[in-house]
Simulated assay, not measured.
Amino acid sequence: MSIVVQLDVMMARRKVRSRDLAEHIGITEANMSLLKQGKVKGVRFETLEKICEYLQCQPGDLLAYVPEHLPDVAPDPGPAVP
């Protein structure tokens, strides 16, 4: 998948334990683990808001777009010759 969850990075920067964050946002530690690993299909905005509030960050600090592969680009043929 092209969207990478960087929650574990932000938690490490803030020195926050999974248990504490899970308790604050109201999810189990097992679900927190799945979220950190990017193994969830979605996240509620309410949950994202609570995470950002606790970690004092923006949603963009938690998610990154990394293309799986770059599209093929045809070489430039140069100027047309009459």
Rank of each mutant, 00 (worst) to 15 (best):
V5L: 08
Q6A: 03
Q6L: 10
Q6T: 04
L7S: 09
L7Q: 09
L7V: 06
D8M: 05
D8I: 03
V9Y: 07
M10V: 15
M10A: 13
A12N: 11
A12K: 14
R13I: 00
R13W: 08
R14K: 15
R14I: 05
K15F: 06
K15R: 14
K15H: 13
R19L: 11
R19M: 10
L21N: 03
L21F: 04
L21D: 00
E23Q: 14
H24C: 04
H24Y: 15
I25G: 09
G26A: 09
G26P: 06
I27V: 15
I27S: 06
E29L: 01
A30H: 09
A30L: 09
A30D: 10
M32Y: 11
M32E: 08
M32S: 11
M32F: 10
S33D: 06
S33Q: 12
S33T: 14
L34C: 07
L34P: 00
L34D: 10
L34Y: 15
L35N: 08
K36I: 10
Q37N: 15
Q37F: 07
G38F: 11
G38P: 12
K39F: 08
K41E: 15
G42N: 13
G42D: 12
V43F: 09
R44M: 03
R44H: 07
F45M: 11
E46S: 15
T47Q: 10
T47I: 06
L48G: 02
E49Y: 13
E49V: 04
K50L: 14
K50W: 01
K50I: 02
C52K: 09
C52H: 08
Q56K: 12
Q56G: 09
Q56D: 14
Q56N: 11
C57Q: 04
C57W: 04
C57G: 06
P59W: 09
P59K: 03
D61K: 02
D61S: 05
L62C: 03
A64Y: 03
A64F: 00
Y65A: 01
V66F: 08
P67M: 02
P67F: 01
E68H: 04
E68Y: 02
E68K: 13
H69F: 11
L70G: 00
L70N: 04
L70Q: 05
P71K: 04
P71F: 09
P71T: 06
P75Y: 06
D76G: 00
D76F: 11
P77M: 05
P77A: 02
G78C: 10
P79R: 15
P79A: 14
P79S: 12
P79L: 14
